[in-house]
Design a protein around this nucleic acid. Structure first.
Length: 282
DNA sequence: TTGTGTTTTATTGCCTCC
DNA sequence: GGAGGCAATAAAACACAA
């Protein structure tokens, strides 16, 4: 991007305040009265029909109704004119900027007053405000975009942290499950032990371990009649002895989160709300 | 000096509102 | 139907590097 342009305060079209009213260039003078020559030296040698047409339309839109003069005079003007853009002076722009800060819309009275104060055509003032509003809108959009971007980045960071935490917890659960399984295998309980599961807010839930086992095992496990090997039996026992692990984290391995079995005879300390949370969270 | 990118001023066409 | 607003665009003015 090129550096920001600096207006020249002594530019040729500086016709406000700096000069007394009598010496100021009339708004249309630079446009239409460039000396007596038809086309000043160093300018375009030809004006297309479209140029004239456009300039004419512009001219009519420029003047307020009461400012419009004789059409023949206008034609004369336009046969002698050249379209030339005039930059506003620093003073004019500052004045307009201040006015814009006060109110970015332009009522007719204000437009006329500003035009008078600045030695511009009302139409020029209107155009300046229009363009200024467009610039303001663009800047505003950029600001909004930046704000949204920042918001997104923050949420993304938060999300990433949660993912990381989830992975850690997942690993922890797997380790604990493994440890428990090993322990159970090495030291099988002499007598059935009640497993007490409780959380901080709800009543404790007591599950007989035999219940936990029997519900899954009863219809398939008969030591006398079984033809499964010892190894298979151990694996089966490990799985069946700790249904909690697979219930609480149903399918963590494949990240396919589903509801825990609501109909289980043992809820493992989860309240109804917990189930609801579970369902909604995934 | 010239080519190029940016900014500003102005035009055009369409839309809305009164 | 005219005035005024806006989006898109043209074109002049300008800055700056090569």
């Amino acid at each position: 991007m090129a550096g920001r342009r600096v207006y020249s305060s002594n530019s040729s079209n500086s016709n406000i305040s700096v000069l007394p009213q009598s010496q100021r260039v009339e708004p249309f003078d630079p446009l239409f009265l460039q000396g007596s020559s038809f086309l000043p030296p160093g300018t375009r040698s030809m004006l297309s029909f479209e140029d004239v047409h456009r300039a004419k339309r512009s001219f009519f839109r420029t003047f307020d109704q009461e400012e419009n003069g004789d059409d023949d005079d206008l034609d004369e003007y336009f046969h002698q004119t050249e379209k030339k853009k005039r930059r506003l002076t620093v003073e004019q722009v500052q004045f307009l900027e201040k006015s814009f800060e006060v109110e970015n819309k332009l009522e007719p009275d204000r437009k006329i007053q500003l035009a008078k104060d600045l030695g511009l055509q009302p139409r020029q003032v209107a155009i300046w405000f229009q363009n200024r509003r467009a610039r303001w809108k663009t800047k505003q959009l950029e600001k909004d975009y930046d704000a949204l971007q920042a918001n997104f980045n923050s949420l993304k960071a938060e999300y990433d942290d949660l993912l990381e935490e989830k992975d850690k917890l997942k690993q922890e659960v797997l380790q604990l499950t493994d440890k428990l399984a090993t322990k159970e295998r090495d030291e099988p309980p002499q007598q059935p032990v009640d497993v007490v599961v409780a959380d901080q807010t709800g009543p404790e839930v007591v599950c007989k371990q035999e219940d936990m086992i029997s519900s899954s095992k009863s219809d398939m496990f008969d030591p006398d009649q079984s033809d499964v090997t010892q190894e298979e039996e151990d694996n089966l026992s490990n799985k069946l002895l700790h249904p909690a692990a697979s219930y609480i984290f149903p399918k963590l391995e494949d990240d396919d989160y589903s509801d825990p079995p609501a109909t289980s005879s043992c809820s493992f300390g989860f309240h109804v709300e917990d189930h609801a949370f579970w369902s909604s969270a995934y």
